[in-house]
Design a protein around this nucleic acid. Structure first.
Lengths: 332, 332
DNA sequence: TGCTAGACTGTGACCGGTCCCAGTCGGAAG
DNA sequence: CTTCCGACTGGGACCGGTCACAGTCTAGCA
C-alpha cells in the first residue's frame, strides 16, 4: 500500500499565493488586518490546491484538539443514544468533532473510558450516564477539562443539561387526574438510575400533595421484561398505571392482556420517552415526550461557554405529553 | 479559566530516567534492542510522572491519527446503532479511537460528513449506510484511506462486512413453509435501501424456487406507520406475512387487530431484527436475529488488515431465527 | 517636514513526538 | 591484534501549524 500521501501544507499555499505562511494562517483564522486582495489570493490558492489545515499540527501547538469526548451507555436505549446523536450534530455545526466511547454502566468502565479519551486529548467531556454516582466518580478524577452531565438524575452537580423530569411526571399525572383517576400505580426504573429515582420521587410527591391513594410502587429495570413481570403484580384496585418508560409499558400491556385486562377500558396507562413503537402498540400509548435534540444542543452550548471561561447555568428542557389511546376515564 | 496545563513530555521522562528522549520513544514503541535495566528505569519514570504520549505530535510526524471514522444514519434505528457501537468497542480494544458523524441518508450529507472527517484526519472509514448508491458515491471520492462498508445491500463493493440477508430470509421462509404456509405475503422496506432490496429479492427468489403462491409485495418504509398502512392491504387469502423488519410488523399487528384478524390464529407473522420490543408485542414476534456485534468486530478486523496492506475477504455474518408466538400452522 | 499610530506582512522559535544517521562498546572471527 | 558485527544509545532534522516579535508602509496630525 502506498505511503500516506501528505496533502499540501501552508507553505505550499503561501508559495502559490506569493505570501508568507503566516499570512495564510491569518486568513484561516479570520484576522482583521488583511488586505482583501491578499485574502482573496490566499483563498484562491487554498481552493486550487485543495488545502486542508492539519489539525494534528494545530493541536500540537495550541494544546487543544477541537474535540469533545462523550461517554455513553453500552446499550441501545433510545434516550441516551438520541442525546449522543444530538451532541454530535450540534458539535459538528460548531466545528468540533466528537470522540465517542460507550461503557458499561460501572464506575470502572466509565472511568476507563474517560481515561482513554483524556489520553487521546479532548477539550471537554460530555457524560451521558444515568447511573447515580457516576457523576461523583467522574468529578473525583479532577479532570482539567470542562465536564457537562446529561440525563443525570442527581442534579446536585454543577453543570448539566437534562429534561425536567419533575415536569414530565406532572404532565402525566395531571392528565390522569383530569380524567378522574385517583388510584394510580407507578412502575419505576432501576433505583441505580438517577432518572428513575427522579421520576419515582416526583410521582410520590405528586400523590402526597394531591391527596391521591397511595399504592405500592413496583420496581422495574427499564426493560419490557421487567414491565411484563410488574404487570402481573398490578393492584386490582388501581385504575391507572404510570410507567417510568415506554418499554416497561409494553411489557405491562402484554401481561395485562394475558390476564384479560383491557387498556384503557379497565385500566389507563401512561409511558415515558415516546419511543418509535409507542405509536403502534395496542393500544397506542400516551406518553411523555423528551426533546433529546434540545438537550444535546444545550450541552454543546454549555461546553462552548465553559471553554471560553464563562460561568454557565444548568439547563432544564421542558417535556411535553403525547396523547394517544391508552388513557381514558376510569370505568367506575 | 486556567490555561491548558501541559503534561510531562518525553524530555521530562528522559531526564528523570537519565537517558535520551529517543530511548524513551524506543521503550514506548517496543523496540527490541534495549537493556532491560534501561527499559525499567524509563518505565519507572513514566509511571512516576504520569506521562502520556501526545497523540497530536505523533500524528503530526507519522501522518496517522489512530482514528477510524464512522458515518452512520441520523435516525435511531437499532441495526445501524448497534453496529456503530460494536465498531467503537472493537476499535477501542485495538487501541484505536472512533470519530463518529451521523448524516441524513442523502448523498450530499454523507459526502459532507466524510469530508469533515477527512479534514480531521482519519486512518480508515467505516460506512454504516443502507441507502443504495451511497457506497458508489463514497467510492467516487477516491479517498486515500481504506473504506469498509457495513449493512450495505449492494454487495458489489469490494470490502464489506454485513449480515447475510439471503440466509436470513431463508430462515424465515423455511420456518413458515415447514409450518405449512404456501400463501406468504411480503412487506418490504424502502427500495432505496440495499437491505430492503436484498430481502425482497431473496423473498421473491424463494417463492419462485419453492413454487409458492405469488402474492403482491407491499411497500413499506421501515416505520411502523407504514407497516400499519400495509397491514390494511394484506391479501385476505394470505396465511402468513413476512415483514422486512420488526417495526413494520408491529404496525401490521395493529392494523390486523383493528380488522379483527388474530395473529397467529388467522395469519402468521415473521419480522426481522429482533428489536427489544419484539419479545413483548402481542403476540411476541418470531423474528430473524442479526448479530451486529459480530459485524462490527469483523469491520475492525477488515480495517486492521487493510491498514497493514493485506488483501482481505468480505465478511458475511450468519443470522439466526428467534421463534416466538406469532407463527403457527395455517388454519385451513 | 517630521513623527507616530495603525494597517499590513514577514521571520524564526517552538509544540512533542518519530525518523535517519551516527556513535560507543563488547565479543567473535580472521 | 585487528576487523567486523550486532547490541545499545544519543543527536538532530523534521512534521505543519501558531505565537511573539519585528519590520514596512501609509495616512493623519502637529
Amino acid at each position: 500500500m502506498a505511503k500516506t500521501t501528505r496533502g499540501p501544507s501552508m507553505h505550499d499555499v503561501a508559495a502559490r499565493a506569493g505570501v508568507s505562511h503566516q499570512t495564510v494562517s491569518r486568513v484561516l483564522n479570520g484576522h482583521h488586518s488583511l488586505r482583501p486582495e491578499t485574502r482573496d489570493r490566499v483563498l484562491e490558492a487554498i481552493a486550487a490546491l485543495g488545502y486542508r489545515r492539519n489539525l494534528a499540527a494545530r493541536a500540537l501547538v495550541t494544546g487543544r484538539t477541537q474535540t469533545i469526548g462523550m461517554v455513553g451507555p453500552d446499550s441501545a436505549e433510545i434516550g441516551p443514544l438520541s442525546t449522543l446523536h444530538a451532541i454530535e450534530k450540534a458539535a459538528r455545526e460548531a466545528g468540533l468533532s466528537t470522540l465517542m466511547t460507550s461503557a458499561e454502566p460501572s464506575r470502572e468502565q466509565m472511568v476507563e473510558s474517560v481515561e482513554f479519551m483524556m489520553g487521546r486529548g479532548i477539550d471537554a467531556l460530555a457524560v451521558v450516564a444515568q447511573q447515580v454516582g457516576i457523576t461523583a466518580a467522574i468529578d473525583e478524577l479532577n479532570l482539567d477539562v470542562p465536564v457537562v452531565h446529561l440525563l443525570a438524575g442527581d442534579q446536585d452537580v454543577s453543570t448539566f443539561a437534562t429534561v425536567d423530569q419533575k415536569a414530565g411526571v406532572r404532565l402525566a399525572m395531571d392528565h390522569l387526574r383530569e380524567l378522574g383517576h385517583t388510584r394510580i400505580q407507578h412502575i419505576s426504573g432501576p433505583a441505580t438510575h438517577g432518572e428513575a429515582r427522579s421520576r419515582r420521587a416526583a410521582f410520590e410527591n405528586y400523590v402526597a400533595q394531591a391527596g391521591l391513594e397511595v399504592l405500592p410502587v413496583l420496581d422495574g429495570d427499564w426493560t419490557s421484561d421487567s414491565g411484563y413481570e410488574a404487570g402481573k403484580l398490578i393492584d386490582p384496585s388501581a385504575t391507572a398505571i404510570f410507567s417510568a418508560n415506554d418499554q416497561m409499558a409494553f411489557g405491562v400491556i402484554h401481561a395485562l392482556s394475558e390476564a384479560g385486562v383491557r387498556v384503557p377500558h379497565d385500566v389507563s396507562l401512561v409511558g415515558f420517552d415516546n419511543t418509535a413503537e409507542a405509536r403502534h402498540c395496542l393500544p397506542p400509548l400516551t406518553t411523555v415526550v423528551q426533546d433529546f435534540g434540545a438537550v444535546g444542543q444545550a450541552a454543546v452550548d454549555l461546553i462552548g461557554g465553559l471553554l471560553q471561561g464563562h460561568d454557565v447555568e444548568p439547563v432544564l428542557v421542558a417535556p411535553s405529553l403525547e396523547l394517544r389511546e391508552s388513557t381514558a376515564a376510569p370505568r367506575a
